[in-house]
Computed example of a mutant assay.
Amino acid sequence: MTAVPAEADRYMLGSRSALAWLIDRYQVTTDKSSGITNDPNDWCDEHDDPAHIVELIKRVTTVAVETMRIVDALEQG
């Protein structure tokens, strides 16, 4: 992905940006004790929606940028 606005990293969920949280949650992981692999891409395949994760990142980026625009305007006014 390219052209993600820097403002998107300013929108925080706790101690990290919303995008960082999303990227962390949508990684392929394997549970050490059971060996079960969790692959978010499986959901996309099962629902015939290969662009789901990309579209989710776009939506979260839009919310983050617009929220920061509103917050900045409130702080100035």
Rank of each mutant, 00 (worst) to 15 (best):
N41L: 12
R25F: 03
T29Q: 12
S17G: 15
D48I: 02
G35S: 09
V4C: 10
W43G: 02
A73Q: 14
V63A: 08
A6Q: 14
W43M: 09
V4Q: 06
N41C: 00
A8I: 01
A6T: 05
M68I: 14
R69E: 14
V4G: 05
R10W: 03
T2D: 10
N41W: 08
R59W: 05
T37H: 09
R59N: 09
C44T: 04
M1E: 01
A18E: 00
D48G: 13
Y26I: 03
Q27N: 08
D72I: 00
D49T: 09
W43S: 05
Y26V: 07
V71I: 11
V60C: 12
I70D: 14
A73F: 12
D39Q: 11
T2E: 09
R16H: 07
A73C: 03
M12E: 01
T29N: 05
V4E: 08
H52G: 03
N38K: 13
A73E: 15
T61Y: 03
C44P: 04
E46Y: 11
R59Q: 13
D24G: 14
V60N: 00
K58C: 05
D42S: 08
T62V: 05
A51V: 02
E75F: 10
R10K: 14
D48M: 12
D24C: 01
R69P: 07
D72T: 06
W21S: 01
D39A: 11
D31E: 15
E75M: 09
V71T: 05
L22H: 05
I23Y: 05
D31S: 11
P5T: 01
R69W: 03
